[in-house]
Simulated scan of single mutants.
Amino acid sequence: MKHDYHVHSTYSDGMFIEFMARAAAEAGLSGLGIADHCIVSAEDAEDRYRREMGFNLDLTYERRRDAIERLRDRVDVRLFDAVEMDYEPRDEAAIEAFLDEAAFDYAIGSVHDLEDVNVHTREYFAEKSESKRRALVDEYFEKLVALADSELFEIAAHPDLVERNPALRGLATEDHYERAAAAFAESRTVPELNAGRALEDGGSLHPAPGFLDALADHGVGVTVGTDSHQPDTIAPCVEQIEATLAERGLEPVRVMDE
């Protein structure tokens, strides 16, 4: 693993870029993607959410790009100017227009919301009936397939994010994985082996083993991202990703050249 394509900085919900870069270099990486959260949407609920959470990279990306450029000579790792965009099918036109304008090194797409509620919100989904929770997992994978079909992104982040929520965990089926894998096989978008839950869930990565099997059956490779928000999580997450790559005999897809 040479590059970590997915970390966050103070331009969304992470730590200072320089701290993240120095930790990546200490972990033996040669490239680091600063991929802060960003939402572009005409929906009032999304606009309120991004203002509350500070996911306003559409307003600050030029300032962050200048910071990245200034830091390049001070750190021993190549910095990539990237973005993690929240994806909703209804917002495709707005997302495409913004990505064309901003011209990032690459873009990561992610499905975070169901019923306009972040998947991480445990209590909201825990109150749902099992049949409703299964229907929501269906909806999640429908959005994931639409993300792949959209061709808007180089990377699809944590492609089974529903596994992060105990109320939704284990409800994804082989059919879900098959449909998503088939969509990625026809798309330029590469799913991500993501370590965002590795340190809290006993080394578990996204996507789950069954999903990885389905991707392999369709000849779909994976790229890699620690999804780190703090410098001290980069090295242990790199170790978890490298262990999984070695176990499966995988060479990660390189989004950026050396």
Rank of each mutant, 00 (worst) to 15 (best):
R51E: 13
A35S: 15
V222T: 12
G170K: 09
D116Q: 14
G221Y: 07
I155V: 15
G33T: 04
D232Q: 13
Y124I: 04
E69Q: 14
F125D: 00
C38P: 04
A214E: 09
F211S: 01
S12V: 04
S129M: 01
C38R: 10
V119M: 12
S12E: 09
F141L: 03
V162N: 13
Y5L: 07
F16P: 10
S129Y: 00
E239M: 10
I39M: 14
M53K: 15
R134Y: 04
I108K: 11
L114P: 07
E251G: 05
L71Q: 01
M1P: 06
A183K: 09
P191H: 11
L59E: 15
K132H: 07
A180H: 03
D138P: 02
H229S: 08
D105V: 00
A172P: 08
Y5W: 04
A82K: 02
L171C: 05
I17N: 11
H218D: 06
A27E: 00
S187E: 07
L144Y: 00
D4W: 07
L144Q: 13
Q240C: 14
L171W: 07
L212I: 14
K132F: 06
E174Y: 04
V255L: 15
S129W: 01
G170R: 07
E127Y: 03
G221L: 05
E43Y: 11
E88D: 14
A148V: 00
S9Y: 06
V111S: 05
D116E: 12
R90W: 09
L152R: 02
A82L: 02
A23S: 14
Q240G: 06
H218F: 08
E174P: 03
L199V: 06
G249K: 02
E139G: 06
D232K: 12
D36R: 10
D116C: 09
Y140M: 03
V7K: 06
L212N: 01
I241D: 09
L136C: 01
A180K: 05
I34G: 05
S150R: 00
F211K: 00
V119L: 15
K132S: 10
V83T: 04
I108Y: 09
L144N: 00
C38M: 14
D175L: 12
D86T: 13
P166Q: 12
V137L: 02
K2T: 13
D76E: 15
C38Q: 04
A216M: 10
A45K: 12
V238Y: 05
Y5G: 04
D160V: 08
I241E: 04
A185L: 10
D13R: 13
V75W: 01
V222R: 03
E69W: 08
A181I: 06
I234F: 05
G14I: 06
A195L: 09
E52C: 06
I241S: 08
D116S: 13
G221W: 04
A208N: 10
A156L: 04
L71G: 00
E258A: 15
L57Y: 09
V119A: 02
D36G: 05
A107M: 07
P89H: 00
V7W: 05
M15T: 15
E251C: 02
A23F: 02
